[in-house]
């Protein structure tokens, strides 16, 4: 058994002049929810297509569940489930027939197929409506069937491309819980494409951030939040004059220092440098009453990364 569910090296795919995926090297451990974050058009969907062997990379290589995407794509698709950009459900067919079709595709024995379909539809609260045509259903209900389809044959890895996009907040929260429960129970790896940052923060053990086809960073949500541009101090006290602030700003680790809402806000390049900041303030004659280390939200860390990307361009 390979340690990584997904392992890519310098994976690249271009469409004419557009670098959809550019030199992507990534390792996704087994048994976690991995969030792949990026704005629209950043290369998330193309990455899934490359990993499923639906597109051939022009450079680099990728292994999914130990199978090479160029030579063993059939094996990857056999062991993986996918909910892509669209639900991919047949609207003329019932929920039960949609799942029956994919159960047959995956060569599940008839008895096992029946039990599994019943189990999943019951879990999602759709069993009673299993014979209705999908076309008449709400987006949230269809999304649930699509997730059931992705999990039907108990795959080792599931690709989910924006699974809660277009859902109302209640349906999205329910769906997140469903995914979390099912993942925990079945122990699969989930590769979650999203630009919904709170969703990624709640669900993912690891997150990769992609921009313009290039991977910017990978880590746990905590690591990304408290990364180089994501850590700040809120300091309460007396004597934060302009001279004191000017002295503070000259410190190597201090990126910014401003008075805000009655306290001093200091943004650090290294979250471990808070003691030096306090020493500097005290040395300059200020009195420090309280120091609070504030981790940036994933959203602000992400936005910062995107801003830096735009500045670099």
């Amino acid at each position: 058994m390979h340690a990584y569910a997904i392992h890519t090296q310098h994976l690249s795919r271009h469409f004419a002049a557009i670098r959809a995926v550019d030199d992507l090297s990534l390792d996704v451990p087994r048994g976690i929810v991995f969030g792949f974050l990026g704005p629209n058009g950043s290369g998330k969907t193309t990455t899934i297509r490359l990993l499923l062997g639906l597109l051939e990379p022009q450079q680099g290589q990728a292994e999914v569940l130990g199978f090479d995407t160029r030579r063993q794509a059939g094996q990857i698709r056999k062991h993986a489930g996918a909910l892509l950009e669209h639900t991919g459900l047949y609207e003329r067919l019932s929920a039960e027939d949609n799942l029956e079709f994919y159960g047959r595709i995956n060569r599940m024995p008839a008895g096992e197929r029946r039990v599994r379909i019943r189990g999943l539809l019951t879990h999602f609260g759709l069993w009673e409506r299993r014979r209705e045509r999908i076309g008449q259903w709400s987006r949230g209900m269809r999304q649930k069937v699509a997730i059931a389809r992705a999990m039907l044959h108990r795959p080792d890895l599931i690709f989910l491309d924006e699974p809660t996009a277009g859902l109302d907040p209640v349906a999205a929260a329910g769906l997140r819980d469903d995914i979390a429960t099912l993942v925990e129970r079945d122990g699969v790896t989930v590769f979650l494409n999203t630009h919904n940052l709170p969703e990624a923060e709640r669900m993912c053990a690891q997150i990769g951030v992609i921009r313009n086809g290039r991977l910017i960073t990978v880590g746990s949500p905590d690591q990304i939040r408290s990364g180089p541009s994501g850590s700040r101090l809120e300091i309460t006290g007396i004597g934060f004059s302009e001279e004191v602030l000017a002295q503070l700003r000259r410190q190597r680790q201090v990126e910014a220092a401003v008075r805000k809402n009655g306290h001093l806000e200091v943004r650090l390049s290294d979250p471990g440098d808070s003691a030096a900041v306090v020493a500097c303030l005290v040395g300059a004659g200020a009195q420090v009453e309280e120091v609070v280390k504030v981790k940036a939200s994933l959203e602000s860390a992400f936005l910062k990364m995107m801003e830096e990307g735009n500045d670099a361009r």
């Binding site: 639906l54 669209h86 991919g88 690709f159």
Partner: peptide, 14 residues
């Protein structure tokens, strides 16, 4: 047109 092709192609069917 009904966006079912990509999901079908992501299955194990040759």
């Amino acid at each position: 047109e009904r966006h079912t092709l990509e999901t079908l192609l992501s299955s194990r069917l040759p």
